[in-house]
Amino acid sequence: MILDKDNIYSDIEQIVSEIGTAKSAVIPILHAIQKKYNYLPEIALRRICDTTEITPASITGVSTFYTQFRHTPVGRHLIYMCNGTACHIKGSELVYDAFLRELRIKGNQDTDPEGLFTLQKVSCLGCCTIAPVVQIDDVTYGHVKTNSVSKILQDFISYQGKKVEQKTSEKKIY
């Protein structure tokens, strides 16, 4: 995705026209920006301050308070490692480490060198009975073990492939 200033400005205009310009619109607006870019580009946040009643202090304070919001770009796919209590006692920590290893994510980074996957801990996905749980984009995997991590990634990638395949085959039929 190319983050061109004009594009962002027109996206922001769209978002603001849908959600509104009130101070209280800040969280819905941030959700919308993140949905668009997968993170919150600073230029977009500054633009919001220019075109709404939302102040720089408010947008900075709010966007750094809530854990959903990210200020740096992420990989193509997001892996949410559930860190809920049930997952914890069933060894999610070890699974998390296995993902780090498998994706060769080093140090303080959260994204693999290819920029394909970003690994993020989340407090609970609410699927406690099938712990440990991992969600990649919109696909959820339950009962994950450290030694099934690479299979999961393979499965996810092939699922992605299938999605594309499905779309093209659908086109062929109709």
Binding site: F65, T67, S123
Partner: peptide, 21 residues
Amino acid sequence: AGAFVCGEETALIASIEGRRG
């Protein structure tokens, strides 16, 4: 947007008002 403390009613209200929770 991801804040356990927003389960507390005054923080929840702050959040709806567009403030830090």
